[in-house]
Amino acid sequence: MIAFILISVLLVLMIAAAIYAVVQKDLLYAVIATGIISLVLSILFYLLQAPDVALTEATIGVALTTIIFVITIRNTERMEVEADKEENIKSTKK
């Protein structure tokens, strides 16, 4: 029963982090949220007796993917721009 409650809480946390990552306009926060998804997922894999997959998810999902996205954001733009606004900017530039 305790395991069931724990897994449910973790799943809710994952969905909340996923929604936050989609809604958030600051891409850096969104990337950190996706890292949290991977972290919670690796805990879930460990609870469900798959330590091999948990280790893979923790190293690749939490560390490597997050870092590569952070580097990408540093080299591009941090804030998300709405699609229709972007078109307006492009048309004014022309």
Binding site: T56, T59, A63, L64, I67
Partner: peptide
Amino acid sequence: YVFIHGHLSPGGGFQGGVIIATGFL
């Protein structure tokens, strides 16, 4: 350690390699 003990404990070549790469990072 993770990739040498791949056949005894959880983990293996991929996981150990990624851990080493994060050290270089």
